[in-house]
Design a protein around this nucleic acid. Sequence first.
DNA 1: ATTGAATTAGTAATAATTACCATTATTAAT
DNA 2: ATTAATAATGGTAATTATTACTAATTCAAT
Lengths: 138, 138
Amino acid sequence: MKEKEKDGTYRITKQRQKILELLTNTKEHPTADQVYKKLKGKFPRLSLGTVYRNLRILKEQGQIWELDFGTGLSHFDAVVHSHYHFICKNCNKIYDIRIPAIKELDERVRTMTGFRIYSHRLEFFGLCDICNQRQSIN
Amino acid sequence: MKEKEKDGTYRITKQRQKILELLTNTKEHPTADQVYKKLKGKFPRLSLGTVYRNLRILKEQGQIWELDFGTGLSHFDAVVHSHYHFICKNCNKIYDIRIPAIKELDERVRTMTGFRIYSHRLEFFGLCDICNQRQSIN
DNA sequence: ATTGAATTAGTAATAATTACCATTATTAAT
DNA sequence: ATTAATAATGGTAATTATTACTAATTCAAT
């Protein structure tokens, strides 16, 4: 709940570089713990707290997004241009849906409510092609 | 992560009735703890575990929805017909946006990906009218 | 190289949620 | 109505994800 204020003075550390690099080079949307476990192999001294801290910092810097899909876990994504997500109900894999934000949705809600709309979040749920085929066969 | 299987044999208990009643009679989208605190006044013997258990059961029964808005907390909503949500970035209040699910969105993603789409979730973020006016003045 | 501050590793502390279990309450059958 | 079977409760302990704390380390500007 409490967000620590930062004055924008950041340093370049190996740990932070590697965390961002890992997120940039994957299509998956790993959790903090998954990032930790993947890097722990190469960086045995890496601390889980460091992963959490850097994920927060990278998010503050706008370099990554924090996503949640109702699983109680935060997922992280280095794709930070406007897009949506699809979550497979069977394998729980998360896919980027490369549709840029549909501005008409915001406008529609603005006229309906009078609220000022900054952004929206849109996630689709269903079966990915792999799970869909498997389901059809069984 | 582990979801307990149920055979559908449920009993009617005072606790479960009161929890559903509270959710039905509010426009807010309370968390488990907020439900607990509100009912604790009338039911001093109520246990927090009971609230969590019943919220899960009511959700299984399709009587309520579990929602999360990136705060790390689950919110509950007895409005279970298709609709969207708006979250005020300033006061954190959650509003129901009474637009029924836009099916064209599902269709668009289906043709784009080939995935089978069951549903989607859409949340808007911004400033509600109260906070918007306050912000404009200051 | 020196120095000041940001960052780290490691561990302890929180916070939300779930698991456990002896007791209680609901339901269906007698 | 009584009884019997078992779902549900209250209370507490355990788990899980995340944050806080701190002495030691590392970065970056002089």
